[in-house]
């Protein structure tokens, strides 16, 4: 189309030299700028359910029982590791066995 109007830049952007881009707001002393985690209370019963669901989900994407068990003892899986730390190996075995019955130990 043969428009005759001139589009004009509404914002001239040159961040390295445009003084409008400098930080104008000072850091607030009372703003901690840190991650604030919201804690959620659970108990063993709730954790048992959560662990079972976790094992079920991983089982249904094709993980084997011992691979799933290894997640509990890996610190990188924070929630599972916390359960293992709090409740021990017995808890982990129960969680696995509730989904893989032939893994149950005598």
């Amino acid at each position: 189309m043969t428009a005759t109007w001139e589009p004009v830049r509404l914002l001239d952007v040159r961040p390295e030299i445009d003084p409008a881009f400098k930080v104008e707001k000072d850091v607030e002393a009372e703003d901690p700028l840190e991650l604030v985690g919201v804690t959620y209370p659970t108990d063993r019963e709730a954790d048992t359910i959560a662990a079972r669901c976790f094992v079920e989900e991983y089982a249904m994407i094709g993980w084997r029982a011992d691979d799933i068990a290894a997640l509990f003892t890996s610190p990188e899986y924070a929630a599972l590791y916390r359960m293992f730390s709090a409740y021990g190996f017995g808890f982990v075995h129960e969680a696995i066995a509730s989904v893989f019955p032939d893994q149950r130990r005598a």
């Binding site: 109007w5 001139e6 589009p7 004009v8 509404l10 914002l11 952007v13 961040p15 881009f21």
Partner: peptide, 24 residues
Amino acid sequence: VDLYQFTDDLYYPARAAGNIQSST
């Protein structure tokens, strides 16, 4: 703003399309 990577008309589609609303 840290940085605008791209600021030519291509990244203002209405301007690139010649829309008079994007003009002054």
